[in-house]
């Protein structure tokens, strides 16, 4: 459960104040897929940064699992992020000179995963995005789609509870983009990870359970989809088990 309460973020000083977020309130249930939709400059990225503790709004609360992360010290926020959150970016941000294995491994190193678990975890994550055969290749030798898959492997290696994706398909052609989308949603459904996608792509947004429309730092609308067949099927499966 992620609750955002009265978050306001302003930039600049006295005479030249720019309000990026203005009194934003909403809540997201665990395991939901959420699209934050808006034009560029609408404040959707700032909202994502505030929710992940990268940015500090002037007022408001961001409560994740009962913990207001804005009240935590920066070191504790770092730890929180390394254990429970991960990110996917529009321009991938993979380390071009490192191997795929080391790209994914960085998360394990930062999060303090015991050394003897690194190998298993990294290989599992690479397998999930079908890049295990590229384990030793350098990231710079990968195609755009492969880079984003590598980024997903990096994002899921430490089993986060929340996955932030900032325009994950923005730099990809539509067919590659769809592969990435499928990967993300499959992961969201299979692992029950809360998926928060920042996008201005309406098609992508329409695949999400919740759509949060944002304009000039204010929430315009929150549309919640009725559970579709897909989830109904899943429920049946769970029931069977």
């Amino acid at each position: 459960m992620i609750e955002v309460r009265g978050v306001t973020k302003t930039y600049g000083k006295k005479n030249n104040v720019f309000t990026a977020l203005s009194d934003v309130n909403f809540s997201i249930p665990d395991g939901a897929s959420v699209a934050i939709v808006g034009k560029s400059g609408s404040g959707k990225s700032t909202l994502m940064h505030a929710m992940s503790g990268l940015d500090r709004p002037q007022t408001g609360e961001v409560i994740i699992d009962g913990q207001d992360i804005l009240k935590l010290k920066s070191k504790e926020v770092d730890r929180f992020r390394s254990r429970k959150m991960s990110f996917i970016f529009q321009s991938f941000f993979v380390e071009a000179n490192e191997t795929c294995y080391n790209n994914v491994g960085m998360v394990c190193e930062i999060a303090g995963v015991p050394a003897n678990e690194h190998r298993r975890k990294i290989e599992k994550a690479l397998e999930a995005v079908e890049l295990l055969d590229k384990k030793k290749s350098r990231a710079r030798d990968l195609s755009g789609g492969q880079k984003q898959r590598l980024a997903i492997a990096r994002a899921i290696v430490n089993n986060p509870t929340t996955l932030f994706a900032d325009e994950p398909t923005g730099n990809l052609d539509s067919s590659t983009g769809e592969i990435i989308e499928n990967l993300l949603f499959r992961y969201n459904k299979e692992k029950g990870v809360t998926l928060i996608i920042v996008t201005h792509d309406d098609d992508l947004a329409s695949r999400c359970d919740i759509n949060i429309q944002i304009r000039d730092g204010r929430i315009v609308s929150i549309n919640e989809k009725k559970p579709k067949k897909e989830s109904a099927l899943k429920k049946k499966k769970v029931a069977k088990k």
Partner: peptide
């Protein structure tokens, strides 16, 4: 710059 940003986003401390 990007590598540094990425490390921080993934939870690396400033000290690291």
């Amino acid at each position: 710059t990007q590598q540094i940003g990425l490390m921080k986003a993934l939870g690396a401390h400033n000290k690291d």
